[in-house]
Computed example of a mutant assay.
Amino acid sequence: MTRITAAPTFQEWPPGVSSDRRYRTGPEVTMSRQQFGFLAGFLAVAVWALAGAGVAALAVLAGLLGWLVVRVLDGDLAVTGLGDRRADARRRR
């Protein structure tokens, strides 16, 4: 899914420093979940074919770990809640 804005957008250069120098950004390109899934699967199989199944499995695990870290840093996943769930499960027994 490609979304192109009608008017060009401008940002400061360098970002975060106020000046009258500005640069024009290009069109915003987004990727659907299906496209991202296809790309991830394709890259996993390509690594598997080129380097072997063990290396591909490690690459997938590293990708999942990176995804999990980003989710925690963005606040989408509360790590503190995981400890509470485990304590609740012990109390039920």
Rank of each mutant, 00 (worst) to 15 (best):
A44Y: 07
V29T: 14
W67A: 09
W67T: 09
F38Y: 15
D74P: 01
V45E: 14
W48G: 00
A87N: 04
W13Y: 15
A57P: 00
S19H: 01
R91N: 05
P8W: 00
G83D: 07
G75W: 05
L39D: 09
M1F: 11
T9H: 15
G41M: 03
G37H: 04
A44S: 13
M31L: 15
L65Y: 13
R3P: 02
V79E: 02
G26A: 09
A51N: 05
V29H: 14
L68C: 05
A51P: 00
S19N: 04
V29R: 13
F38T: 13
R33W: 09
A56H: 01
G81V: 02
R21T: 05
A51F: 14
L73N: 06
L50S: 08
R21S: 02
D20F: 04
F10T: 08
V45D: 14
L82P: 00
E12T: 07
E12R: 08
P8N: 00
A51C: 06
L68Q: 09
D88Y: 08
G63Q: 03
A56E: 00
Q11D: 12
L61Q: 06
L65Q: 10
W48P: 00
A44V: 05
V47N: 00
F38G: 12
L58Y: 01
A89V: 13
L43I: 13
L64W: 09
A44P: 00
L61V: 06
G83A: 15
T9K: 14
D74W: 04
R33Q: 10
V45H: 08
V55A: 09
R71K: 07
A87S: 12
T80D: 14
S18Q: 13
T80M: 10
R24S: 03
W13D: 09
W13V: 10
A51H: 13
T5I: 12
R91A: 15
R22Y: 03
V17Y: 07
A57E: 04
A89R: 12
P14N: 01
R33T: 10
P15K: 14
G52H: 04
V47A: 01
A44C: 06
A6D: 12
E12L: 11
L64R: 06
G52V: 02
V70Q: 12
V17G: 01
T80Q: 07
W48M: 10
T25K: 07
R85V: 12
A57N: 03
V17D: 02
P8F: 03
L82C: 04
